[in-house]
């Protein structure tokens, strides 16, 4: 199902370039007209603490004390726009679609609010409007409306230090590899999203090991929907086998007698 055509877009997020200015976070709220919630400082500047239905992207401030000198990383989160999205496959009503550009988008009109997409997403991205009685699932849209308009996503547009490179996914993958090759030792040897969950449209480079930055590095390289499809795909065969098998067993076990007391009743009738 992964449609990796030449239209497929991607974003290379080079975390080594992020200065934590949070312009992207505001730009996203601004473009998508999102509200805010009440926050507090809890000894760290990450705010809101998690993505939520009003926050599609957020910078996490991650501080590591390496003795002599701290390492301070700023990590941008948003939907990864998987090439074969778990959310899309999980949704019972097909509320998610994947555009030719690779954006994974949501249709409110279809959604029933079962939240399976939230549980299924390997990156815990879809968020729910808990306070609403007619709730949406919300998440980064890849600014598809902007892309359709020939613009680049809002968060990318405002970023002062070009943390994000928007382009054809193939090209940005090449660029990621080039940067790794050009600066040996600068990055950890891992392009996050190249393989995770079967490949994502947004991929990351980092100087700090990904698992230390809150990335889940246990996500298999597999296209996750295959895992359920392996089961679902065999349903017709299973149904066939079961029907035939059960009929045969029933026929065998009920041989002779006309199998239940309904028939015994009729037998009785006959006897009468």
């Amino acid at each position: 199902m992964a449609t990796n055509n030449e239209k497929a877009k991607g974003v290379l997020v080079d975390l080594t370039r992020c200065i934590g200015c949070r312009g992207c976070q505001v730009a996203c709220k601004s473009w998508n007209e999102r509200k805010t919630g009440k926050t507090t400082i809890e000894g760290n500047f990450t705010n809101p603490k998690q993505l939520n239905s009003d926050t599609f992207t957020r910078i996490a401030f991650i501080e590591q004390d390496n003795g002599a000198q701290p390492v301070w990383s700023f990590v941008k989160d948003q939907c990864m726009h998987c090439q074969d999205p778990a959310c899309l496959s999980a949704c019972p009503v097909g509320a998610f679609t994947r555009t030719p550009e690779g954006a994974v988008n949501y249709t409110f009109e279809k959604c029933i609010g079962c939240r399976y997409c939230m549980v299924a997403c390997p990156f815990n991205i879809p968020k729910y409007e808990w306070e609403s009685t007619n709730p949406w699932i919300r998440k980064c849209t890849f600014c598809s409306d902007r892309i359709a308009d020939g613009k680049i996503p809002a968060c990318i547009k405002v970023c002062p230090t070009n943390v994000m490179l928007f382009g054809n996914r193939e090209d940005i993958m090449k660029e990621a590899e080039k940067r790794m090759k050009d600066s040996p030792g600068k990055y950890v040897n891992h392009i996050y999203g190249k393989e995770e969950a079967g490949g994502t449209s947004w991929v990351y480079l980092s100087a700090v090991p990904f698992d230390q930055l809150g990335f889940n590095t246990k996500i298999p390289a597999q296209k996750l929907p295959d895992l359920t499809w392996n089961m679902l795909g065999t349903i017709p065969a299973k149904v066939g086998a079961l029907v035939v098998g059960l009929s045969l067993i029933a026929a065998f076990r009920n041989r002779g007698a006309n199998n239940d007391d309904d028939s015994s009743e009729s037998k009785q009738g006959k006897e009468k």
């Binding site: 019972p92 009503v93 279809k110």
Partner: peptide, 13 residues
């Protein structure tokens, strides 16, 4: 909705 909006790839469906 699931009865008329089908996503056969969904377990939930």
């Amino acid at each position: 909705h699931p009865l008329v909006m089908w996503n056969p790839r969904s377990v939930m469906f």
